[in-house]
Computed example of a mutant assay.
Amino acid sequence: MREPLSRERVLAAAVALADAEGVPALTMRRLAASLGVEAMSLYHHLPGKDGLLDGLVETVAAEVVAAVSRDGETGPDEDWRDTLRRWFLAAREVMLRHPWAPALMGRGKAVPPVVYAYYEMILGTMIGAGFSYRIAHRALHAFGSMPLGFVQELFGSGDEGGDDEAELAAMAEALPHMAAMVAAELHAATDPTLGWCDSQVEFQFTLDLLLDGLERYRG
């Protein structure tokens, strides 16, 4: 007997399709085909493409919170920085499994409720470590999207398939410091990336920089 459709089943199939083929390939028709149903039957569970994209964000956000929860709360002798570092890196592992998710999470839609519970955990950790609410609030601004496992792109990578050497040479004439920075930051093939400005090395460097800097304001 065929498993009945549910919102959860539809979204799980949508995540799998996005992982395999990318979000541009994710249409209601393509999703229905992967589930062996007619496209119209999906509209009982999701109100069109926007609802589908919102559902993808909710699903990945829930996966982040589940990963953080499995990673455990602050131990009795654990430094607050180690706790947040573990959580943020656990979230990043989720994003590396779904590299299309950061772009969707930046669409400006409503924040999934499960994310608020996660940020409550972050705030509780900081307040418990001796931070004031004012500094904790500023810390959340400084972290940006890092608690969710990614950072926003500062500079795009340009059109795919372009001649990188030619582009760098042209840039060097007008913007020598920019060109030097780009050349210095070309990522190694072994460094997992979610974008040109979001490699694993950069993520961990920035995270440690923020955590160590905030320690000055504790208590």
Rank of each mutant, 00 (worst) to 15 (best):
L210W: 05
Y43I: 06
L35F: 00
A33I: 03
A61G: 05
E173H: 05
D19H: 00
A169W: 09
V23G: 00
G213R: 11
P99T: 04
W80H: 08
D79G: 01
L52P: 10
G106Y: 04
V114C: 15
L56F: 03
H137D: 15
F205M: 14
A136D: 10
S6I: 07
R2Y: 02
G195I: 06
H45P: 11
R29T: 07
A188F: 01
L123S: 12
A139C: 13
A32C: 05
V115M: 15
E215Q: 13
R7N: 08
E3Q: 00
L46Y: 01
P47L: 00
A67H: 08
E185H: 11
R9S: 12
T125E: 08
V64L: 10
A110K: 11
F143P: 08
M178E: 04
E8A: 02
D54H: 09
C197W: 02
D163Q: 13
S69H: 07
D164W: 13
V10M: 05
A91Q: 05
V23W: 04
R9I: 15
S41D: 08
A20Q: 08
G161E: 09
G156A: 09
A170R: 14
D208G: 12
P192G: 12
A129I: 04
Y119L: 14
L175N: 07
S69T: 12
G161R: 14
V15M: 12
R85G: 05
F203C: 13
A189E: 06
D212K: 10
M40R: 15
E160R: 14
A18P: 11
A25E: 14
A20G: 04
Q152N: 12
A184I: 09
F203I: 11
A62P: 00
I127M: 11
V111Q: 14
E173N: 00
Q200Y: 02
H44L: 14
E21W: 03
D163C: 11
